[in-house]
Write a protein that binds this DNA or RNA. Structure first.
Lengths: 343, 343
DNA sequence: TTGTAGGCGTTATCAC
DNA sequence: GTGATAACGCCTACAA
């Protein structure tokens, strides 16, 4: 049981060379190194079971090959998909990720950001809450590598990876329209904060309705906290004219809607057509199969990691470039044009 | 734009005290510190915008307040739930987690373990693959804090957090039996490796059948890779006597089964009763609602974090204690006893 | 081609 | 109460 920690000095001693030579060896600077020196070092490393201490290296080199990922709320399938994709790309580039879940609390987010910086992570990818502008700003002024994802903060000149949210709503509305629906609503779960996706999705939704000359009925447009969605739905469906079609702003809203239709025995799509933003795991096995607007999470996560790593490696960050990713309509059976009477 | 890094030395200078005094201040050792000294230091820290460098501290203290989490395969909902729970508990204890996805590759796992150790993480929680026994063993012999989760490795004396897998199968079989099903099968997706949950679930399944004097039909018991499940199902259902009830070994297997029933227009539960291990997000909104066996992921993740942190903080690890968590049967509508003829 | 010496930012020991 | 000084383990000029 090899308890004592082996350092580079031990290796040097064992191999009868100096610490610097060992260090060179470890860093692959073989250029001027004698064959036998190499071998002796290799042997010593093996014999002693030496393992480099990256913390010490980090201290010296001011780089940790670790990045922070702060997720706004990990309970969205979208978040975990993005994290998964970031991890994959980072792994290829030999970075590690520290994952943090801000749970939509700006204070938590702030604490995480501060700790991550204290731990000298090389950069961070964050799903920003909207209440830490000054903090982002200050990081950015120091040229601290940072990338936003899912949301953005107009005041802060940081690159953002985002869905083309308006396009997403537009795709949905067009699909509804194409299939003959007219009374169309949208439901999103909101935190108090004005997060980009929600705002843009609603905006895009309204615009798309208008451009199709469809009625914009405020009572079909709801953005409330998750646990209030069911209440809103009840209310919406006690209107004289309830909506015929509903767009779910994200996966959790979709689940609420499905729960509601189930409970009240509404048939999809005949009583209510549904489209969800986010291609949930069960979309193609649900009865009926769910028409969704998918986000390219793989590419988005990868792009975020790429951008961050290139910033870390010295590229000047582009001036608040916004990368918009296109959503894809996956047309399935929860929105087919079959309406109530027909069933 | 404050480019130069502020260190403890700068603060000391600014406050006209020594580095040691500042360090004491930072570490809350106020016992013998003058009021005004404190104030001067506080002021200096503020003025200079000093931020401690945890890497340097880690080097000195040999502790990073960071732990590694190596997930076998993050595409299971179970994995992300566990990670989420671990993160939550770690956050409360001021630890950070580095998340790694081994994708069921022992080599990847090994690389991760080595890098994490090199980064001096204080301990690791791992969903072990079965092919790194020597590595685990060696870590363990060095008393390196480690906790296994979901799976365990009999040869290695490390504590494990696990579902009571046999109980899970048993609950399912009993439910099937109670409702009058007799031809009962199980489908799991397997990696090549002999992972604990799969093995135990099948074992428990067979035992439960036997104890109920139900027929054990090998052609109803399949453990194959994910993409082969559909093939197996086709085969199973071209038997003269196909199964009446099927237990899905985990979330992904369940999805495969549901895909299959959908494609072949089998009605659940009348043509086929289904129970899934893992309480998937869509269980209660699926049509029909899915009877599942839920794992207490929150508690399991928490326990893993607790155990690890207490080991880190000096507690001797218990001698390969195995913590079994009880599954819960959530009886819904995919298994009701209603059989073919009745519909 | 290899070795020496100093420093990265912090903490710890022990004087003063 | 406070301050030198020496680590922690590694990297990197520069010297030899």
């Amino acid at each position: 049981m090899n308890t004592k920690k082996i350092t580079i000095a031990d290796v040097a001693e064992e191999a009868k060379v100096s610490k610097s030579t060992v260090s060179q060896y470890l860093n692959q600077r073989f250029e001027y190194m004698g064959e036998q020196t190499k071998e002796r070092i290799a042997q010593a490393i093996k014999d002693l079971g030496y393992r480099p201490n990256i913390v010490a290296r980090s201290l010296k080199q001011k780089t940790t090959t670790t990045i922070g990922v702060i997720v706004a709320n990990i309970s969205h399938e979208f978040s975990t998909q993005i994290v998964q994709s970031i991890e994959k790309y980072c792994n290829e580039s030999n970075y590690h990720i520290i994952v943090c879940n801000a749970e939509d609390h700006p204070e938590k987010e702030q604490k995480y950001i501060e700790m991550l910086r204290a731990k000298q992570v090389d950069g961070i990818i964050v799903f920003p809450t909207s209440n830490n502008k000054e903090l982002y700003q200050s990081l950015n002024l120091e040229d601290y590598p940072m990338v936003f994802i899912d949301r953005y903060v107009p005041e802060v000149k940081v690159s953002s990876i985002m869905l083309d949210n308006k396009k997403a709503s537009q795709l949905a509305v067009e699909e509804f329209h194409r299939l003959g629906y007219e009374r169309i609503g949208i439901i999103t779960n909101s935190t108090k904060n004005n997060v980009t996706p929600r705002v843009e999705r609603i905006e895009g939704f309204v615009q798309a309705l208008e451009s199709k000359n469809l009625e914009v009925n405020e009572s079909y447009i709801k953005s409330v906290s998750l646990h209030e969605i069911s209440k809103e739905l009840v209310q919406m469906f006690s209107l004289e004219q309830p909506p015929e079609a509903l767009l779910a702003g994200n996966d959790l809203a979709l689940i609420e809607i499905l729960q509601f239709t189930k409970k009240h025995q509404l048939q999809i799509p005949s009583d209510l057509a549904v489209i969800g933003i986010d291609d949930v795991s069960f979309a193609s096995i649900y009865n009926p199969e769910l028409t969704t607007i998918a986000q390219p999470t793989d590419e988005m996560g990868k792009k975020a990691a790429e951008l961050l790593i290139s910033q870390i490696q010295g590229e000047k960050p582009p001036f608040q470039q916004i990368y918009r990713f296109s959503p894809t309509l996956l047309s399935r059976s929860s929105c087919t044009g079959i309406k109530g009477g027909i069933l």
